[in-house]
Amino acid sequence: MAKILVVEDDRDLNKAYCIILRHEGHEVITAFDGKEALAKVDEFEPDLILLDLLMPIMGGLEFLQSWSTADRKNVKVLIFTNMENSPEISEAYKLGASRCIIKSWTAPHNLARVVTETLKSGNGSPKAKRVKTPA
């Protein structure tokens, strides 16, 4: 099972995603904005980040811009947004997102399935590099 960092500012949705993903056996921690995610990502070393785009303090795109590509290793980024067909999604792909899904169209069983598929897919980020972390 994988380590997943859920970054979502809506507390109800954040809690729901945790329940669904923990139910699937994943180890999950949460952040409520990009800044909090940046503070947690290196220590937690997630396999996948479930990332909202529109958040206060620091949004998803800003998080991807600030998160050093050298630190990404093989971490997959799954964008979970309600801004369908928006320029922000194109931007997220450019910044290394693996896949994008629309929250209000995605039932819990689909979320669990998409997470599994994304974890199984090849290198998530085109910019991702395998870097040995210091002991």
Partner: peptide, 13 residues
């Protein structure tokens, strides 16, 4: 959509 997503997600759950 944000509150709608919560309604839908919890109902599905």
């Amino acid at each position: 959509r944000t509150p709608l997503s919560a309604i839908k997600t919890y109902t599905h759950m």
